[in-house]
Amino acid sequence: MPRYGMVIDTKKCVGCQDCVVACKTENNIPEGYNRDWIVTEVKGKFPTVQMEIRTERCNHCSNTPCVSCCPTGASHIHEFGGIVLVDHEMCIGCKACVEACPYDARYIHPDGYADKCTFCIHRVEKGQNPACVEVCPTHCMYFGDLDDPNSEVSKLLQSRKWHVNLPDAGTEPNIFYLI
């Protein structure tokens, strides 16, 4: 089984939020909520400034505090590619996972369940990319199997410098940022 992950080229990302809008229409996310978002990190003093722009979402971690804290088993790692999902029927909306996620990737949907990025599993199962990857006008996002050394994501991680978010949290995130 593959281990799905994302590689995001921060050199190319312009932070336009197209990924956010595409996620919202693809997945019918209600107004005021979103499963992905943009972070702009600025360092230095004008005019010597460094800036990194990142599109962020659930990291689909290999070590998942959101799953281990879930009292009902709604939060789980799916066998299909290791994608972290929430079974909305089983979810009681207790917010334990919302608190546990160090990336603040989850929210309680107005219908009462915890919601977050699914890597667009409904698309991935059909061999398509997640909606955010597919829409990105800068082509800064790559999706694929991290366990396949010949996949584009693996090759990018071999050839470029990268970082993950909150590496010290011990979550083993599966989203990587090229720098």
């Binding site: 336009c16 939020q17 197209d18 956010v20 809008v21 595409a22 229409t25 693809e26 597919e134 829409v135 990105c136 006008p137 082509h139």
Partner: peptide, 22 residues
């Protein structure tokens, strides 16, 4: 439901900007 870019279109090359997606 949604709007995507037309891959045949030389302007969008199948990818709209956030406004188009919206």
């Amino acid at each position: 439901w949604k709007v995507e870019g037309n891959p045949l279109d030389p302007l969008s090359k199948g990818r709209l900007c956030p406004r188009g997606t919206g």
